[in-house]
């Protein structure tokens, strides 16, 4: 066993990471409880709120599974607990892998899987990854209230501009996210699978919505997003059989 893994897999590391995760889990539950109470105060239907919670929880299971791939990959190098912390709190599957590699390269290694990875580099990696992930929460801490106030003011004074800003920007953002999936296959034919997933996912979501309108069943509207996502994955699976 490499020396640093005894630190990475120590009880102390497990306790330190566990405390942070428990705190953030508590924070989520606290905000949810507060929102639930507020919803009741303003006369929202508890059925709607319950369905929001269950629908969101149900949707979140499938996209959480690919994160496990990064978790297992990082666990083999950074030990069991730090990757668990990073992917549960703040981190994202795209950030953590790159960040761990950059930290290793600052010590002259090719990547974090390099043989020369040791306890000193491991501790430095903990610091570098922990500090550099904090920019977003710090920005939110100092800027979110002003941003919210500005948006509320704008909504009152210029409602059309506000509407364009919010819904228009969302359309632009979604277009931006879709563009690489719609085009990358022209450079890399195997990316046709992403195109298939995007198109079948979108098509299925529209079909669910259409059926919901026709049959007047709200359940189908609720299913349009998670159902569309699952059909999209199936689309990629089927496309792979033909490629």
């Amino acid at each position: 066993m490499k020396d640093y893994l005894s630190i990475a897999n120590s009880t102390l590391m497990a306790a330190a990471c566990g405390i942070v995760i428990l705190y953030v889990l508590g924070q989520s539950l606290f905000f949810m409880r507060r929102a639930w109470k507020r919803g009741k105060e303003i006369g929202m239907d508890t059925k709607v709120m319950r369905k929001t919670v269950s629908g969101s929880a149900l949707f979140s299971i499938v996209p959480s599974i690919p994160i496990l791939i990064i978790l297992v990959m990082l666990m083999s190098v950074l030990g069991n607990y730090f990757p668990w912390l990073r992917l549960s709190v703040i981190g994202s599957s795209s950030y953590e892998n790159v960040a761990a590699n950059i930290a290793a390269r600052s010590f002259g290694l090719l990547s974090y899987t390099d043989e020369g990875y040791n306890a000193s580099i491991f501790i430095s990696t903990l610091w570098a990854m922990s500090i550099c992930i904090l920019y977003e929460p710090l920005l939110i801490m100092f800027g979110q209230k002003s941003l919210d106030k500005g948006m509320a003011k704008l909504k009152k004074s210029k409602p059309i501009f506000y509407n364009l800003l919010i819904d228009g920007i969302f359309i632009a953002m979604m277009s931006w996210f879709c563009a690489p999936y719609l085009t990358y296959w022209t450079e890399k034919p195997e990316q046709l699978l992403s195109l298939a997933a995007l198109v079948t996912g979108g098509g299925a979501a529209l079909l669910f919505n259409w059926l919901a309108k026709k049959t007047n069943r709200h359940f189908l509207t609720e299913m349009s997003f998670p159902g569309g996502m699952l059909v999209g994955m199936l689309g990629a699976y089927i496309a792979n059989l033909f490629l």
Binding site: V62, P63, I65, P66, M174, S175, F177, C178, Y181, L193, S194, L195, A196, A197, L198, V199, T200, G201, G202, G203, A204, A205, L206, S224, F225, P226, G227, G228, M229, L230, V231, G232, M233, G235, A236
Partner: peptide
């Protein structure tokens, strides 16, 4: 392809 699938279902 979870991400393109969910992007399509959300955007369409």
């Amino acid at each position: 392809n979870v991400t393109p699938a969910l992007t399509g279902a959300l955007a369409a």
